[in-house]
Design a protein around this nucleic acid. Structure first.
Lengths: 225, 225
DNA sequence: GCCAGTCATCGTACTAAGTACGACAACGAA
DNA sequence: TTCGTTGTCGTACTTAGTACGATGACTGGC
């Protein structure tokens, strides 16, 4: 580290809050939120740790910020579609966004200071239900159950400890070997006869459940006009 | 701190792994998982930090352990009930358990080394679906969507930043004041016309959504025998 | 072209937390 | 009594968040 800049270094454009957040997301995606530290982020951004604090006030503010960025990545329900189709689109988009950021699901609903993209997102979803003719009461139920399902599915999907057919087989065998088959017969059956069969994918259930919920909301709307 | 034991101290029964886990749950319930540290737990248990490591190998093992304890607190689906009623009971029980332990929802599905109560729980739920006559395929969908909904709801409920009518009003006003009403009209309407009305409770939506999902699964069972 | 002020960057250091290592004391069995 | 066993703890190392203040580069006004 000579005091004069090493000549081969490309001149860095000054760090900004946006670059900090973008780097934070990239790092969290790669190593997980547990391993995510200011020091590692600094290395990633090619600066020293304290430099980061000139652009964001704290690690917590970074978490707030990246959650808002993720909200911004989710497609809003398109105005031109009928409400249930629009919400469906938004949910499918959200699931794919949350799958790209496995650290996000537990955090999306835990921030007490929502950012602008978060507010815009909630406003758009509420507006979609209302334009579809749902009462405030039913809108509340609908939003609560749809998002519960969405975040819960994303949470489970993000925590699947495998990402391919080989890994799933390894893990399943490890768990199965940890207890006698007679102790948990249904778990053993389910694992060997279904999960380990080719073609199994947890994600296949997503649209099934989503459509059940949307149909249930639509039915409630009919029966209570 | 004289080296000889102060005479008025009641003699401590020796610490055990169970007492460590029980204390950990109590502490996490009280101060949250973020604030939960080995050092604080030691103070709580009236021992020094390193004593804890004679009964559990690491903080991570404590997390594994308390998650398993929480699984053990959830009622299993009763054998004598029809499958959907039995699953319903189990879900209602789970929701109330998870509400008592707000730190738990994000962790329940993220452990790679499930404990005995966790395995027993999953085995019982799978067995309930199978005894009800659901195919393995439908059982997989059913379990995935029911648990997504359950954990998602618990996650949202655990993260509600208010716990009474006054707090909710405070927070809502703080959020509403942070932006012009015209910017997010639906959010403003929803908050002032519904959330702030007496009698609103997020939790009221739980059984509505749960019943929609159970009915959807039953319908799928009929149409594909 | 010079200078003072501004601003991004960073070095140092403090505090909190997880936990490895080994000392020590209390207690039971030989 | 003695020795081993077992639970308890003191010390200390490492990693992490971040407060404080210094430093160097860059800028607008002269």
């Amino acid at each position: 580290m000579t005091p004069t800049a090493t000549s081969h270094d490309t001149v860095h454009t000054p760090l900004t809050a946006e670059r900090v957040l973008a780097g934070a997301i990239e790092l969290a995606d790669r190593i997980g939120i547990e391993q995510f530290t200011i020091r590692r982020l600094a290395t990633e951004l090619d600066v020293k740790p304290m430099t980061i604090y000139h652009h964001v006030p704290s690690k917590d503010a970074i978490i707030d910020g990246i959650v808002d960025v993720v909200f911004g990545q989710i497609d809003l329900p398109p105005d031109e579609l009928e409400w249930s189709a629009a919400i469906r689109r938004r949910c499918v988009s959200a699931r794919s966004v949350l799958a790209r950021h496995p650290w996000a699901p537990p955090l999306m609903e835990s921030r007490t200071t929502p950012g602008p993209a978060t507010l815009r997102h909630h406003d758009a979803v509420l507006g979609c239900f209302r334009r579809g003719g749902l009462s405030l009461q039913l809108t509340a139920h609908a939003y609560a159950i749809i998002d519960s399902y969405l975040y819960g599915f994303a949470l489970q999907e993000a925590n699947l400890p495998f990402h391919g057919d080989e890994e799933i087989a390894e893990l399943a065998e490890a768990i199965l070997e940890s207890f006698p088959v007679e102790a948990f017969p249904h778990l053993a059956e389910f694992t060997t006869q279904h999960v380990l069969r080719p073609g199994y994918s947890f994600g296949h259930s997503f649209e099934f459940g989503l459509d059940v919920l949307l149909a249930g909301i639509a039915a409630a709307q009919q029966s209570n006009p």
